[in-house]
Design a protein around this nucleic acid. Sequence first.
DNA 1: CGGTTAAAATTGGTCTGACCACTTGACCAA
DNA 2: TTGGTCAAGTGGTCAGACCAATTTTAACCG
Lengths: 233, 233
Amino acid sequence: MPLQTLEPRRLYRQIADQISVLISDGEYTPGARLPPERDLARQLGVSRPSVREALIALEVEGLLDVRVGSGIYVSDPGKRRRNDALQGDSGPFEVIHARRLIEGECAALAAKNANPAQLRAIRGAHAGMVRESKRHHNPLDADRLFHVSIAEASGNSALVMVVQALWDQRMGPLYRSLERKLEYPKMAAETVREHQAIVSAIVRRDPRAARSAMRRHMDQTHNRYIKEWSAGS
Amino acid sequence: MPLQTLEPRRLYRQIADQISVLISDGEYTPGARLPPERDLARQLGVSRPSVREALIALEVEGLLDVRVGSGIYVSDPGKRRRNDALQGDSGPFEVIHARRLIEGECAALAAKNANPAQLRAIRGAHAGMVRESKRHHNPLDADRLFHVSIAEASGNSALVMVVQALWDQRMGPLYRSLERKLEYPKMAAETVREHQAIVSAIVRRDPRAARSAMRRHMDQTHNRYIKEWSAGS
DNA sequence: CGGTTAAAATTGGTCTGACCACTTGACCAA
DNA sequence: TTGGTCAAGTGGTCAGACCAATTTTAACCG
């Protein structure tokens, strides 16, 4: 058996990891304020400089936002380093299928897990989508917010990142050329109707209906792309 | 011209950036040892804790390697690049849950869609995992290949990218600190058994069994992490 | 009573100095 | 040559002090 290098765990790392777990377990949600340094030090039974070192590490990692005189806040997931590995060349139809699979599950989780603030966020995002769809352009920002709000209500930040990254694939050249052909506001009105069905299922706390509604939305979006692609070819 | 938010530059950031410049200018090459903390503090006209905070930041960024009692060394570029590739800060448990959801579906799709070449690739990856698991280190590369091979057999390149990105979350600091505690080769043997069940279901063309086997593998991985985390606290 | 201003409290930022744990190298004895 | 001891130097952590920035509270005035 080969000898392994021993690696003593530095105190700052231990403190940082403990705080990390509290965040990923949802004890401190994005935007939440952590206890003051002095309190953290006392609670953890360590010195304040050691706490500070841990906070520096977490700040560098993007997990925390330290504001002088105010406090230490949990960064929102969007502000953290983005999932750049997902800049690929998957086709629009592959992305839709992947989103159907993943976002269907996110919608089901949201129907199960969403707290009141998250439900409000989903509703707000939907209202924004309704508002924006009246205009004669593709309401991309509103659509992104809608889908990300649902992912956030799933309660899993890894899923949020995946949904964001897949949605951002729409910004790729393949997607853009396809969407340039779509008609507004007809398509937006259909999208809004489909979003409404998703929202209703989530608000009713019906995971199966939410999953079905999201999958149906993706199927319809897929069909809209097929139609336009055929018309364009 | 919109007003810009003023951002006072914290001392640790200033020190860290100055040291960064010295490294990128070639004054300290990979493997080189920096002056001792006390000397850096004197030369920079700051306190030693401030220097330490800067060194923590640079360590987290992967630029430096701090050895107790020995000194501070510049990391080699290979290690640095690895840390530059860090994406996201989701907790290990969140990543496992997301992977359970997504990779369960990938395994089901693979059981349905895999062509002969893809089945061969999955088998080859599994054989590699078996081989590597006999050694006394975590067979990370083989594990990654196994999971990615299954995603590839799903036939959706967007899913492949998602699986890759989620797997790569294991390279993040949270994950690394957790995995450092795991025992080998016991854990690798369990993993291999669970992988075998996944492969069998895929080869048998049984999507439901494949989905279940993958989910079970993630559940067991989750339990292994829980056990180690409790033991470590 | 409401609005404004100043003072107090709280929070993070940085410093000084002390002591502890670990590493390295030199030296000596077996 | 190997093992043990010691000294010096290094990073690690702590306690306490003071300063800067922000928030909260109290006082003052119309």
